[in-house]
């Protein structure tokens, strides 16, 4: 009975929880910043790479190969390794501006590199899911390849992939904690500091609370979109 009380006290001490709140919140703002910037970058870069991967013709082969190499590399490498590469490797290169950015910036770069690779595949699946007859219809109206992609294929592809894309964003948001390994002072590392100083663990619970508060609504929103689309598709079948 006594031991259980100890455990509860170490993890769920409300006083300590409240005490940790300001520090961890200050750190979580860094997470929020990394999430927001990385997500915007990922949305744009991944679409560009997905389009490059689908370029037709022999001339575009080197570009396609580059895009494939990129996604293969960053999907296959653990994010923590990428973080080491970027966070420790790049400053070590002594490349002036590039090597003198903040840890937060290197964190954002890490997240962007890795999640762009995932989201590229998501976009690509979406682009391929648009039926070939749509392309034929657009091209036969005299639209160029680029116009067909821009006005006909990509809008349909993006609508279809919003749920899996948001799913990857839940992953990205949580992984903002991983880049603390290169020294970013964010929620996870600050909660660890607080825990060490205070000798208990409620600060971790604070950090968990923040992450959950931001990822659960996104997950529910994704579910909602999936359900909405299923309803619409079922309605269309009749």
């Amino acid at each position: 009975m006594h031991a259980l009380h100890e455990v509860l006290h170490a993890f769920f001490n409300l006083h300590s929880y409240t005490l940790a709140m300001p520090d961890v919140w200050a750190g979580f703002q860094v997470n929020l910043k990394m999430m927001a910037i990385a997500e915007v970058l990922v949305l744009v870069l991944a679409l560009a790479i997905a389009v490059i991967r689908g370029l037709p013709g022999r001339g575009a082969k080197p570009l396609r190969a580059l895009a494939i190499a990129y996604t293969d590399f960053f999907r296959g490498t653990p994010i923590i390794i990428v973080a080491f590469f970027v966070g420790f490797g790049v400053p070590g290169l002594q490349l002036g501006y590039i090597s003198s950015r903040s840890f937060t910036t290197y964190g954002i770069v890490t997240l962007t590199l890795v999640y762009t690779a995932y989201v590229t595949e998501v976009y690509r699946a979406g682009i391929e899911s648009v039926h070939a007859s749509q392309r034929a219809a657009a091209r036969s109206l005299g639209l160029s390849y680029a116009q067909t992609m821009r006005y006909v294929i990509i809008p349909q592809a993006v609508r279809r992939v919003i749920p899996p894309l948001l799913n990857d964003f839940v992953g990205l948001q949580k992984d903002t904690a991983i880049v603390s390994v290169i020294g970013v002072a964010e929620a996870a590392s600050l909660s660890q500091q607080f825990s060490t100083q205070n000798g208990d663990f409620p600060s971790y619970l604070v950090a968990a609370t923040f992450f959950i508060l931001i990822t659960i609504p996104l997950a529910r929103f994704t579910d909602h979109l999936v359900a909405q689309r299923e309803r619409r598709e079922r309605a269309q079948a009749f």
Partner: peptide, 16 residues
Amino acid sequence: RRKIGIVFQAYNLFPH
């Protein structure tokens, strides 16, 4: 293709 219109069996309107 701007001079030639084609209409397909499955209409192929743009659904979005």
